[in-house]
């Protein structure tokens, strides 16, 4: 099947080219060599129809997952940067689901920082949408752990993404849902948890210390080590806050399904 492999390799490259076939002598020559032209559709036009479809389809797929980014950038800027993204990172999976996994990183330096943040938020929502289901944690297990809980490692829900953002870009998603204008927000450090509650996507701003604690837990640190790590980086006036709040935060995380399991040593 060498002939078929060669044909598909050549066509695959031609169909992923961001340049129209009229501007690309190589692709025109390929079309004439392999495609049979007919009176209504020349060989080049036949190939060009499929090339256009490649970009329509993939731009559509990305736009569907990044509605707020499309609004914030405007379609033309979105199309330009996403076309460049598709050329730099052509699809390598049979599924369209992971198509834009590297888009937020790609946008760094190519779009405003708040637009990059917005892309990170929208990608986190894609991840949360179909993350693995998990049963609620057994509350009795947490109670029974007593003081041993300090040394337990914590399993966070698979849908959770912790985002440290330079602007409250979740407000853009909220305004978009309400049908309002969606300009990018002013810079303001924002700590966001993106997650799925049952089947529905949600997000919540959390205090920076809570974010730091969740982040340490997500790296597999036992509870007390995680808190030590956060405490070590606290300003002196924050230590009291951490001690006063952590118990309540933990109960809230359990209640919200952010904590799915505790593993005692």
């Amino acid at each position: 099947m060498k002939r078929l492999a060669e044909l598909q390799r050549e066509l695959s490259a031609a169909l992923r080219s961001p340049r129209p076939i009229w501007q690309d002598d190589g692709t025109r020559a390929l079309a004439d060599r392999v495609v049979r032209g007919q009176p209504r559709l020349s060989a080049a036009r036949q190939l060009e129809l499929y090339r256009e479809q490649f970009f329509f389809r993939h731009l559509d797929a990305v736009a569907e997952d990044f509605p707020a980014l499309v609004e914030a950038l405007g379609w033309d800027a979105f199309e330009e940067v996403t076309t460049a993204y598709l050329a730099a990172h052509p699809p390598t999976s049979f599924s369209l689901r992971d198509l834009a996994a590297r888009l937020p990183d790609f946008l760094e330096g190519r779009a405003a920082p708040a637009a990059v943040d917005l892309a990170r938020l929208e990608w986190a929502l894609v991840e949360a949408f179909d993350a693995a289901d998990a049963p609620p944690i057994d509350a009795a297990k947490v109670t029974a752990a007593g003081d041993a809980l300090d040394r337990a490692t914590i399993t966070l829900d698979a849908s959770l993404t912790l985002l440290a953002l330079g602007a409250p870009v979740h407000e853009v998603r909220e305004r978009l849902a309400g049908g309002e204008a969606t300009a990018l927000p002013e810079a303001r450090p924002t700590w966001l948890v993106v997650y799925r509650r049952e089947l529905d996507l949600d997000w919540r701003e959390v205090p920076p210390l809570a974010h730091a604690a969740l982040s340490a837990l997500s790296r597999g640190l036992p509870l007390s080590d995680a808190l030590d790590e956060v405490a070590a980086r606290c300003a002196p006036d924050e230590l009291g806050t951490l001690e006063a709040e952590i118990g309540g935060w933990f109960r809230q995380w359990v209640a919200d399904g952010w904590i799915r399991d505790v593993t005692l040593p």
Partner: peptide, 25 residues
């Protein structure tokens, strides 16, 4: 149809050369 070539997915339903050899493949 074919939908990927040279390791890249096109997410399209692309026609094949209609030969006996391809049919057997």
């Amino acid at each position: 149809c074919w939908s990927a070539g040279g390791g890249h997915h096109l997410h399209d339903l692309l026609p094949l050369p209609m030969t006996l050899e391809v049919a057997r493949h």
